[in-house]
Design a protein around this nucleic acid. Structure first.
Lengths: 171, 171
DNA sequence: ACAGCCATGTAACTTGTTACATGATTTT
DNA sequence: AAAATCATGTAACAAGTTACATGGCTGT
C-alpha cells in the first residue's frame, strides 16, 4: 500500500527518499509512523519493477541525493489502482478482534485487563486524531482520512462496550 | 494472526491441517476466507519455532494424517499474546482509505465510479454479515466478532457519505 | 565537542498469499 | 465415470518491518 502512496507522491515531482518520508507523513497527518528504511526498501522494489527510476543528483557541497521519478509504467499502474475497487471483505482481520474471539471461545485467561487496556488505547487514539483535526493547516485530503479513522475508533469503542457486556458480565 | 488462531484451536485437542481450516472457518463464521495452503505454511513455521509438534497418525485404510498439538512453549506464547494489549494505532492502513486520500490529493482520475463500487462492496458485506448473524447455531464468540465487523462496515458507510460530499460536490 | 538532523542504504526476518503437484475416498 | 471432498504439502513471491552501518552538515 505504501507502494502506491509513494507513486502518488511522485506524480507532482521527483523526490528523494527522505523527502518522500516527510511528504508521506504530512499526507497522513502523522497517523502512520513510518520507518525510513521501509521507504528505501519499497523504492528499491519499485525501481526493480520499473515503476520508478532514480538518478544521483550532486548537491555540492552537500552529499549526493538519489532522486526518484515516476516512469510511464508507474503512472499507468497508479491510475489503474486508483480506479479499481477494493475486494469486498469484512474487517475481521484485526488483532484485537481475534484476541477477543479467542478469549470468548477458550476462556483461558481473564479478559478484564485486556479490555481495560484496549479502551485506554482507543481513547488515546481518539485524542490524537482529534488533535490532528484541530490543526488549521491540515490538507483536506488528510482531514478526510483522519475523519474516517475517527469513525472507526468510535465503532471500536462501541464494540468494546458490547464485549464488556458479553465477556465480563458473563452474558 | 492466523498463527495465534491456530494455537487457540489446538488448546482443546490435537488437530490435523484440514480440520484446523474447518475449525477456523467455523470460528470466524466464514467471514475470513482461508487458502488451505496457508494453514500448512503457518503450521510449518509454528513447528519450526517449537510452538506445535506433529506426528503422523495412520488411518488405515484412509491415508495418514499429520496431527498437530500444542507444546508447552506454544501454550505459554498463546497466553502471553492473549493478555497483551494491542499497540494503539488508528485504522488508516486501509486500501480504500489510501485510494481516497490520493484521489483527493492528486485529482488524477474521477472518483465517482470508485465510490459507487465501494458502496456496493460495503452493502454486500453488510448483507453477508447480517445473514451470518441470522444463523441460530452461531457460537457467541463468533457472534461477537461478526457484530464488530458490522459496526465497522457501518462506520465505513458513514465515511463514504462524507467522501461523496467532499469529492463529488467539490467540497 | 557534541547533539541532532539530513541522508542513504542493506540484511534479515515475519506474515500473508497463491499456484501448483499429488493422491485417496466418497458421492452422484 | 466424473465430480466433489478429504488431505498434505512446496515453491515462490509480495509486503511489512526493523536493526544496523555509514557518513555529512548545522547549531550550540
Amino acid at each position: 500500500m505504501l507502494k502506491y502512496a509513494l507513486l502518488g507522491l511522485l506524480v507532482d515531482r521527483p523526490r528523494h527518499g527522505y523527502d518522500l518520508k516527510a511528504g508521506f507523513e504530512t499526507l497522513v497527518g502523522g497517523t502512520w509512523p513510518l520507518n525510513i528504511g521501509q521507504v528505501y526498501t519499497t523504492l528499491g522494489r519499485l525501481e526493480r519493477d520499473g515503476l520508478v527510476r532514480s538518478e544521483l543528483v550532486e548537491q555540492d557541497p552537500r552529499p549526493d541525493r538519489r532522486v526518484y521519478s515516476l516512469t510511464e509504467t508507474g503512472e499507468k499502474e497508479l491510475r489503474r489502482w486508483l480506479v479499481d475497487a477494493v475486494e469486498p471483505q469484512p474487517h475481521v482481520k484485526d488483532e484485537f478482534y481475534v484476541k477477543v474471539l479467542l478469549h470468548r471461545a477458550l476462556a483461558l485467561e481473564d479478559p478484564a485487563d485486556l479490555l481495560w487496556a484496549q479502551r485506554q488505547n482507543y481513547l488515546e487514539t481518539l485524542a490524537t486524531l482529534t488533535a490532528v483535526l484541530d490543526e488549521p493547516s491540515l490538507a483536506d485530503a488528510t482531514r478526510l482520512l483522519v475523519e474516517g479513522a475517527v469513525l472507526h475508533v468510535e465503532a471500536d469503542l462501541r464494540w468494546l462496550d458490547r464485549c464488556e457486556e458479553t465477556l465480563l458480565r458473563g452474558g
